[in-house]
C-alpha cells in the first residue's frame, strides 16, 4: 500500500472519479493550469482539459451557483473554494439553494454537488485564512458536512461525496495537507458519509473530535499511555448530520468525555454531541462532559504568540485528558 500525504489523497480521489465518470468536473479559482493554490488539482488540467478543470472568475457565489446548476442538469461538479473563509458570499447559494432544492421541489430536482474548501489555522493565515466554518452549515438539513482526518479517509470520503446524490461540503484542514501522511490504497474504495470512526481504542477517557484535532488527540493519547491513561478517540468525520449512535456508544464506553475542536467554543458542532450525550447517557457518566475549543474571539490572529494561544495543539489536549482521567 502506498503512503500518501493528505493533499495527494485529494488529488487522487479527484483524478480517479474524473476517470470513472465523465460527468465529474472541477471548477474554482486557479484550479486549471496552476493546479490550485494548494496544488489539489495538480495534473488534472493536463489530463482532462479546460472544460472539466474550469478556471472560474473570482466570484464565489457564481462558483457555487454555476455548480448547483450543472448538478441539477445531471453532472457531478466539484467546486473548490480557495479558502473556507471566502465561502461567505456563496452561503446564500449553499443554504437557500443547494440544501433546499430536493425538499422544495418535492424530490423532483436534486443537487449532487461537492464543495471542497481548505479550513483551519496554525499556518500564519490570520483571521481570513484560518477559520473553521462548519458550524455555520451544521444546522441546515439538506447539507452534509464532512471533515476527514487521514489520507485514507480523504480519498474514501471524497469519492463518496462526489457519488452522493445530495450536496456535500468537504472541509480539508490546510495544515494537514503536507503534515499528515498515511497509507492510501491505490484501488477504488469509498468511506461512508455519516459514520464516525474509532481511531484508537481506550478505556479511561473518550475524546471526540474531527479534522486535524484527531491527530492532536492521537498524539496526546500516545504520551498518556506511558502514564497509564488509556484514551479512546472517536473521529466524527461527518459533523452534520452527526453519527448520534456512535457518539452515544463512545460516551458510554468510558463515561468520561472530552470534546475537542479548533472552532470557537460557543456554538461549535460539538455542542450537538454534548447535547446528545446529555439526552442519552446521564447514568453512564463519571465526570461532566468537557469541551476544549478555541476562545470566543472572532478568528485567530496573525502574530505567532497570539495564533498559538488560539490554536489547538497536542499539549492542550493532553492536559485536558489527564485532568479528566483524574476526576
Amino acid at each position: 500500500m502506498a503512503t500518501s500525504n493528505f493533499i495527494s489523497a485529494v488529488t487522487q480521489a479527484l483524478k480517479e472519479e474524473m476517470e470513472r465518470d465523465d460527468g465529474v468536473f472541477v471548477l474554482g479559482e486557479d484550479v486549471g493550469a496552476k493546479g490550485g493554490v494548494f496544488r489539489a488539482t495538480e495534473g488534472l488540467y493536463e489530463q482532462f482539459g479546460e472544460l472539466r478543470v474550469l478556471d472560474t472568475p473570482l466570484a464565489e457565489s457564481a462558483i457555487a451557483g454555476v455548480g448547483i446548476g450543472a448538478a441539477m442538469y445531471g453532472l457531478r461538479p466539484v467546486a473548490e473554494m480557495q479558502f473556507a473563509d471566502f465561502m461567505l458570499p456563496a452561503v446564500n447559494q449553499i443554504i437557500s439553494e443547494a440544501a433546499k432544492i430536493r425538499y422544495r421541489s418535492n424530490n423532483d430536482w436534486d443537487v449532487p454537488i461537492t464543495v471542497r474548501a481548505p479550513y483551519g489555522g496554525g499556518i500564519h493565515g490570520a483571521l481570513y485564512h484560518s477559520q473553521s466554518l462548519e458550524a455555520l452549515f451544521a444546522s441546515t438539513p439538506g447539507l452534509k458536512v464532512v471533515i476527514p482526518s487521514t489520507p485514507y479517509d480523504v480519498k474514501g470520503l471524497l469519492k463518496a461525496a462526489i457519488r452522493d446524490p445530495d450536496p456535500v461540503l468537504f472541509f480539508e484542514h490546510k495544515k494537514a495537507y503536507r503534515l499528515i501522511k498515511g497509507e492510501v490504497p491505490e484501488e477504488d474504495y469509498t468511506v461512508p458519509i455519516g459514520t464516525a470512526d474509532v481511531k484508537r481504542e481506550g478505556e479511561d477517557v473518550t475524546v471526540m473530535t474531527y479534522g486535524l484535532c484527531v491527530h492532536f488527540a492521537l498524539e496526546a493519547a500516545e504520551k498518556l499511555e506511558a502514564e497509564g491513561i488509556s484514551t479512546h478517540v472517536l473521529d466524527l468525520r461527518t459533523v452534520y448530520p452527526l453519527d448520534h449512535a456512535a457518539v452515544v456508544e463512545a460516551a458510554r464506553h468510558t463515561g468520561k468525555i472530552l470534546l475537542v475542536t479548533e472552532d470557537n467554543k460557543e456554538g461549535s458542532v460539538l455542542n450537538e454531541a454534548a447535547a446528545t450525550i446529555a439526552e442519552n447517557c446521564l447514568f453512564d457518566l463519571d465526570a461532566p462532559v468537557e469541551r476544549l475549543a478555541a476562545p470566543d474571539v472572532p478568528a485567530m490572529p496573525y502574530a505567532s504568540p497570539l495564533e498559538k494561544h488560539y490554536m489547538m495543539n497536542t499539549e492542550k489536549v493532553e492536559k485536558a485528558i489527564r485532568e479528566l482521567a483524574e476526576f
Binding site: 457564481a62 451557483g65 448538478a71
Partner: peptide, 11 residues
Amino acid sequence: VPHAVGFAMAG
C-alpha cells in the same frame, strides 16, 4: 441566474 449559467456550462 447562476443556475442558468450552470445548465449552459453543463451543456
